[in-house]
């Protein structure tokens, strides 16, 4: 199964992924709307964030664990797994047991609901991957990535099979 992977050596901290995520998870997929509807901080309407700071950038991405701790801890049956872990907002009651139990910090407590990366379910590639200008985020099979990592090819920015795509807008 394809997953979003982060190659930290390539990242230049531009934050394009966060912005693309905000746009993608908007009603009409338009960045302008996400800017005027939701002030960027503290209620950022993204499910994918990159911290800008002195520390290493680290995307909060869901690993789609085999035995998801969030799913076991969910008291309302909102967290489910079918290939990917997803949060059903109709059932979510905002108790944040999942936030407390996710060891990767990948679930965010926004709008009184548990918000998490849905890997842009209905698109070919997630928005953050499409937006990344340096291919620091790639959407590949974990096995393929580990092969590339073994050969230490990831240091070359152009080598990964992840062509630069322009965002749709």
């Amino acid at each position: 199964m394809k997953e979003i992977h982060f190659i930290k050596d390539r990242c230049i901290r531009c934050g394009a992924c966060s912005v693309a995520c905000a746009a993608e998870h908007n009603k009409n997929h338009h960045l302008y709307d996400s800017l005027i509807n939701i002030p960027f901080a503290p209620k950022q309407k993204t499910v994918f964030q990159v911290e800008q700071g002195e520390a290493l950038p680290h995307p909060l991405r869901c690993r789609n664990c085999e035995e998801p701790a969030c799913m076991e801890a969910c008291i309302s049956g909102a967290m489910n797994k079918e290939h990917r872990v997803f949060s059903n907002w109709k059932r979510c009651i905002g108790c944040f047991m999942c936030v407390m139990n996710c060891p990767y910090g990948a679930i965010l407590p926004f709008f009184g609901k548990a918000v998490k990366c849905d890997q842009c379910l209905f698109t070919e590639k997630p928005a953050c991957v499409r937006a990344c200008p340096v291919n620091a985020l790639v959407f590949v099979d974990s096995h393929d990535l580990s092969l590339v990592r073994k050969q230490k090819r990831w240091r070359n920015r152009k080598d990964m099979d992840a062509p630069l795509l322009r965002a749709r807008y």
């Binding site: 700071g53 950038p57 139990n101 060891p103 990767y104």
Partner: peptide, 30 residues
């Protein structure tokens, strides 16, 4: 990021791996 702290408690992660500001930061994993 509460889950990261809970995991750190469970695993007994030593404090030395955290930078000085990890507690005050909103994003402990960073």
């Amino acid at each position: 990021g509460a889950g990261i702290l809970l995991n750190a408690i469970k695993k007994g992660t030593p404090r030395s791996i955290w930078k000085r500001d990890f507690l005050s930061s909103h994003w402990p994993c960073l």
